[in-house]
């Protein structure tokens, strides 16, 4: 059983929801990332999404774009991110890791090479934001051969026929984008979410995580009540950005504990 599946099954048995943080690997600098990941686990997260920095993050808002720019100042490459994952795995054999980013760094590395490296270092899933199913047949062949779960986004604008198509290809969990916009926007509509999720579950048997626009404990709690996992990205990255470097781990941990407690109340 994959780490992602094992994690969600265990949570389901405990009647708990997953907390899935997103951090940009290499932000604010490459030395912080692995210790920060261990601290996230200690603070109660279930799956970690590691953002692979890209020069042109079109689907992200300004907060995550600045994080990518900080990481790229240190020349953090996809290879470096995979090395960080390997280093994390030395001390943590169970927490699922998902790489999230854009297709071009993977294209440059080659999908076969990427998938093989993911398997080797213990990455469990890959979310390539700008590779929809239509363009991904070859890419996902490589991922699946190496047992790496392709994670897909589903948007409020995704129609039912596309949901069906994505449901067939998706592994691990599905990431529902809770608003029309880029990451970090602030107008999540809970009623719309409550209406949408049962529709999705008609086709999607995998756990559904919800993200984009979850900025505080109250929202995290409300969202957790509706789905299987809560993804928090920009809010954490903002905390990293606004903290002095030596305080990053403590500040982010405190925020994550708050989110964890709220989600567990749901």
């Amino acid at each position: 059983m994959s780490r992602i599946q094992a994690t969600f099954e265990k949570l389901a048995q405990q009647n708990r929801k997953a907390l899935i943080p997103y951090i940009t690997a290499g932000d604010p600098n490459p030395d912080v990332t692995v210790p920060l990941m261990h601290a996230l686990v200690e603070a109660g997260v279930d799956v970690i999404e590691m953002g692979v920095p890209f020069s042109d993050p079109m689907a992200d808002g300004s907060v995550i774009q600045r994080a990518a720019e900080r990481a790229l100042k240190h020349n953090v490459s996809l290879c470096d991110v995979l090395d960080m994952a390997a280093k994390f795995r030395e001390k943590d054999a169970t927490t699922p890791l998902v790489l999230m980013g854009y297709g071009n760094p993977v294209e440059a590395m080659g999908w076969e090479n990427f998938a093989a490296r993911c398997a080797e270092v213990g990455v469990d899933g890959a979310l390539t934001v700008d590779f929809p199913p239509e363009e991904s047949h070859e890419a996902f062949g490589h991922l699946q051969r190496h047992g790496i779960a392709p994670i897909f986004l589903i948007a409020p604008t995704t129609d039912e026929s596309r949901v069906e198509k994505i449901a067939k290809l998706a592994r691990g969990y599905v990431y529902y984008v809770s608003l029309k916009g880029v990451t970090g926007a602030g107008h999540l509509d809970l009623e719309e979410l409550a209406r949408k999720l049962p529709e999705l579950r008609r086709h999607i048997k995998l756990p559904i995580g919800v993200g984009f626009g979850i900025r505080d404990a109250a929202t995290a709690k409300a969202v957790a009540a509706l789905c299987d996992g809560v993804v928090v990205g920009s809010r954490l990255v903002q905390e990293i950005e606004s903290s002095a470097e030596q305080d990053v781990i403590a500040k982010v941990s405190a925020l994550v504990k708050e989110l964890r407690a709220a989600i567990d109340e749901a």
Binding site: A59, P132, E134, E135, A155, T157, I166, V177, G181
Partner: peptide, 20 residues
């Protein structure tokens, strides 16, 4: 019909834009 000129072109966007 899928927007490709040989190996080039295509639709490489986030799911949020596919409907539009």
């Amino acid at each position: 019909s899928t927007g490709h000129f040989g190996p080039y072109g295509g639709i490489y966007v986030a799911e949020t834009l596919m409907g539009a």
